[in-house]
C-alpha cells in the first residue's frame, strides 16, 4: 500500500480513489488548551477512514473541524482539490459533507420520514416563493426527494417506523434514523461520530453491517470516530490514531495495531 500514489487497492480488493479531503497542519486551541496539535491526514475517495484514540484525544474536535462546527486556529482544510475558506456548518453541509452526532441530534418532534427528508435540504433548489405556492419546481423536487428518502429508509430497514415520531424510538433505532438522515443528503463524505456508542452487541453488529453496506452500495466515503478498537479494526481501511491532541499513528489497521506508540497510548507505559 502506498499513500503517495493515486489511490490503492484494499485487502478485500476494493479500489480506493484520490484524495477528497486533506487536513494540513491543523491546530485547534480553546484559550490555553490545545485540543489538536499540528495534525495532517487525508481522506480518499471510497475508503472507510477511522479516527481513533482514548477519551479526550481530540477526535470529536477533529470531526467538528471537518464539519465546520469549529474553525481551526492554524492549518488548512482542502476539499476536492481546493483550499476551503472558513465556513459555517450549513455551508459545509451543502458542499456534501454530512454528519451524525455522538449524542444523537434528531428533530424529536418530527416523524422518521420528515427527519430523513430534512437530509435532502442540502439539495433544495426551488426558491421560497415557489414552495409557498407549491408550484412548478417545488413539486417535482418534493417527489424526487421523497423517492430518495424512501430508498434510504428501505436500505436501513426502518420502513416499519416511517411515520413514528422520533421521540418515541429506542436509542439504537434513533442512531439508525440519524444515519438515514445523513445518507439522504447523498454526501460526498459521511462523518460518523461514535456510531456504536452506547449500543449492545446486536445493535453494534447491525450498525457495522450498515456502514459496510453503505460504503459498498453507494460508494460513499466514510470517516468515523470510534473508541471501540475491535470494531474499528474490522471496519476501516486506514486509521488515524490520536492521543492528547497529537497524531501518533496513521496507516492500515495492521500497521496501527503493531505501532508501539499506539500500544502505549491504549495500554499505558511503565515509567
Amino acid at each position: 500500500m502506498t499513500d503517495q500514489a493515486e489511490g490503492y487497492t484494499t485487502a478485500d480488493g476494493r479500489k480506493i480513489g484520490g484524495v477528497v479531503m486533506e487536513m494540513k497542519n491543523i491546530t485547534l486551541r480553546f484559550g490555553g488548551v490545545v485540543a489538536i496539535h499540528n495534525i495532517s491526514f487525508d481522506i480518499r475517495e471510497g475508503e472507510i477512514r477511522a479516527i481513533i484514540g482514548p477519551n479526550g484525544a481530540g477526535k470529536s474536535s477533529m470531526l467538528n473541524v471537518i464539519s465546520g462546527f469549529y474553525t481551526p486556529s492554524e492549518g488548512e482544510v482542502w476539499y476536492k482539490g481546493a483550499k476551503r475558506p472558513p465556513m459555517k456548518p450549513y455551508e459545509v453541509a451543502r458542499q456534501g459533507v454530512a454528519r451524525t452526532f455522538q449524542n444523537i441530534a434528531l428533530f424529536e418532534g418530527m416523524s422518521v420520514l420528515d427527519n430523513v427528508m430534512t437530509g435532502r435540504l442540502t439539495h433544495m433548489k426551488a426558491g421560497i416563493l415557489p414552495q409557498m405556492i407549491w408550484k412548478g419546481r417545488a413539486e417535482a423536487e418534493e417527489t424526487e426527494n421523497r423517492i430518495i428518502a424512501e430508498r434510504v429508509i428501505d436500505f436501513l430497514e426502518i420502513q416499519h417506523i416511517r411515520k413514528t415520531p422520533v421521540a418515541r424510538l429506542p436509542y439504537g433505532l434513533k442512531k439508525r434514523v440519524e444515519l438515514a438522515r445523513a445518507l439522504a443528503a447523498e454526501p460526498t463524505i459521511l462523518l460518523l461520530d461514535e456510531p456504536m456508542a452506547g449500543m449492545n452487541v446486536e445493535e453494534k453488529e447491525d450498525m457495522c453491517r450498515f456502514i459496510l453496506d453503505v460504503n459498498d452500495e453507494f460508494g460513499t466515503t466514510i470517516a468515523l470516530i470510534e473508541h471501540d478498537m475491535g470494531v474499528v479494526m474490522d471496519l476501516s481501511d486506514r486509521v488515524v490514531v490520536m492521543d492528547y491532541g497529537k497524531k501518533i499513528g496513521d496507516g492500515s489497521p495492521d500497521e496501527v495495531r503493531n505501532n508501539q506508540d499506539v500500544i502505549d497510548a491504549y495500554l499505558g507505559v511503565q515509567h
Binding site: F69, Y90, A98, A105, L106, L121
Partner: peptide, 8 residues
C-alpha cells in the same frame, strides 16, 4: 445544531 448539520 442538527439543523446546521443538514444545511439549514
Amino acid at each position: 445544531q442538527a439543523a446546521l448539520s443538514v444545511g439549514i
